[in-house]
Design a binder for these strands. Structure first.
Lengths: 223, 223
DNA sequence: GTCTATATGGGGATAGAC
DNA sequence: GTCTATCCCCATATAGAC
């Protein structure tokens, strides 16, 4: 096996195991046994477990974010006044990560779970690293959402984008859980369908007027 | 220190550390050092690390779910045809966990992070245990949502509820991340405000008609 | 570049004195 | 009920032969 192969094999095994069991719960020994390589090879190629984690994430996130920005540029080029501009930028943000699962198993489903998991499992260290990876995406997308939602105060816009990302993350990390609850009701493998569902749901949520100061949504639940 | 105190102290320390670092990354030794008790005490009172995890979750989730069902009954009693019935049941589902953070630090914020994290960090074991805790809640709430959203096919209803829960989970687990991105734009401590934002966003998303078969939301992104 | 062997420390769990 | 002491395993990481 060539050196490049060894490195790739380690990355693939690590991606799968991290996705299934989490970073802390996955040992380098689990990884090398899955990959069929030697323990020392991991340290030779990556230096440390933390560096391996970063390499696993970088391999997917960097092209992923490039694709997001490409789609955002495409939407911008189409004109921010298009009736479905909002749908287009939502799709540009949530489509690429969800669509990853359509590719082969290694590149897709495992990583999808992994990135969903990473949202939650962050050590302070990992968290900083992870969110830094999305800095530019946030910086580029937020103004687009402001353009698409001029009716919203920025705090409301922020929360709604946050909820949308939560829906995306939750969908990415627990396909099995969905299947547990939704036996037969919906198809968790129809990624394009899921994306359309999330786009539609989020667009409707983002288009709604902000009524927080009225009494209407203040549900009286405390007796 | 009495036996009951020891047990409580362990639960509190475990809750905080699990919330901050995750289940796998937190050792019993971390916990006893935080709690100021002996390692053997953990095994005496709980039996194993897994049983301790379950005890930590049970302590909050059981009353939490009771409160959810109480609020659901209250909404049902008010009549399913009330204009804000949908808002009421959304609030009944997402309000109690988010509201926990208003209580004291131990009972609240730590657990909020913890339960958000648990959504993602599940071992297969833990995941089964965790989702079993919400079985009854799902069984009772889903028909209420069906009543409130007769316009939606059940697969679309299911996905939208799923996205809503994702927004809730994401909000619960990464207050720091929100603050990183939203410097000053919104107040992450205003839990009632967050709840109202999420209720409003989700209600709008759930009320929207399902257009998936039309071309409108099929954003053409692939050249 | 890849291996074996090992250093060094931390993990969960338990036996048995008090 | 609580402690000390310890078992035994697994973790990350590295040294050094090939």
């Amino acid at each position: 096996m060539s050196a490049a192969d060894t490195k790739l094999t380690i990355l693939d095994a690590a991606e799968r195991l991290f996705a299934d069991h989490g970073f802390a719960a996955t040992s380098l020994r689990n990884i090398i046994s899955e990959a069929g390589v030697n323990l020392a090879a991991v340290h030779y190629h990556f230096g440390s477990k933390d560096a391996l984690i970063k390499a696993v994430l970088d391999r997917r996130i960097i092209p992923l974010n490039l694709e997001r920005l490409r789609l955002l540029d495409l939407a911008d080029a189409g004109g921010a006044d298009a009736v479905d501009f909002l749908e287009q930028i939502i799709e540009a943000l949530i489509g690429p990560p969800l669509r990853l699962s359509r590719e082969n198993k290694t590149a897709g489903e495992h990583f999808m779970k992994l990135i969903g998991r990473t949202f939650a499992e962050a050590d302070e260290n990992l968290k900083k690293m992870f969110f830094a990876m999305f800095d530019e995406v946030v910086r580029r997308f937020f103004p687009a959402f402001e353009k698409a939602c001029p009716h919203l105060p920025s705090s409301t816009l922020f929360w709604r984008c946050h909820f949308m990302v939560g829906g995306m993350a939750h969908t990415m990390c627990d396909k099995e859980a969905v299947e547990m609850y939704a036996k037969g009701v919906c198809d968790t493998n129809d990624v394009d369908g899921i994306i359309r569902e999330l786009v539609e749901f989020s667009a409707a949520g983002l288009r709604a007027t902000a009524n927080l100061t009225t009494a209407k949504t203040k549900v009286k639940v405390r007796k």
